[in-house]
């Protein structure tokens, strides 16, 4: 302990912490977790159908033709009910929406679609959030714009409100 140099170590460590904390206090706090996969191609996946009424979803379903929306949702998710009409509106504009149902059961998926409408062309069942995590989504609902080459172009976090619809349409246009 008698080493003079050692006596300054606590102060140095403290100064480092204080500097870091001061810097972090001045930073804007961002509550959303943005995907680091934007600009990257979709990972390879092939999911089973989420219920008997529609086919499952795979990476190949996104390739060719027009850009598509990838909607991460679940029948147990309340905001997903709120965004159902907006998805219908997007479908009415001719957008193809492929769903991924997170940790869901076939009967619940069928119930949900029967009650709130079915805007999807396909729904894959992601029972352990495997694909969800792989595309960098941290919650439900989230919606991704995927271009015809299978590249993730845009991420929308949270439920889609009425004023988000034009934004998504513009992003789909950009991805062409």
């Amino acid at each position: 302990m008698k080493n003079r140099f050692l006596l300054w170590v606590p102060l140095a460590l403290f100064a480092f912490f204080a500097g870091l904390a001061a810097y972090m206090l001045t930073q804007e706090k961002d509550q959303f977790v943005a995907s680091t996969m934007i600009g990257q191609p979709l990972p390879d996946f092939a999911l089973d159908p989420a219920f008997a009424g529609l086919p499952g979803a795979a990476k190949a379903d996104f390739l060719g033709g027009q850009p598509r929306l990838l909607n991460v949702w679940a029948s147990w998710c309340l905001p997903c009910i709120a965004e159902a009409p907006q998805l219908e509106a997007l479908k009415a504009q001719g957008v193809e929406i492929i769903g991924i149902a997170i940790r869901d059961r076939p009967e619940d998926v069928a119930n949900f679609l029967g009650r709130y409408g079915n805007p999807y062309s396909r729904i894959g069942s992601d029972r352990i959030s495997e694909v969800q995590l792989a595309i960098g989504s941290s919650g439900v609902p989230e919606t991704f714009v995927i271009d015809a080459k299978g590249v993730i172009r845009y991420q929308h976090i949270g439920d889609i409100r009425a004023d988000d619809v034009p934004v998504l349409l513009a992003e789909l246009e950009k991805a062409k």
């Binding site: 006596l7 300054w8 606590p10 102060l11 403290f14 100064a15 204080a18």
Partner: peptide
């Protein structure tokens, strides 16, 4: 406090 205390300590 802590910066001061560690300075006096050193």
């Amino acid at each position: 406090y802590i910066g001061g205390a560690f300075t006096i300590f050193a």
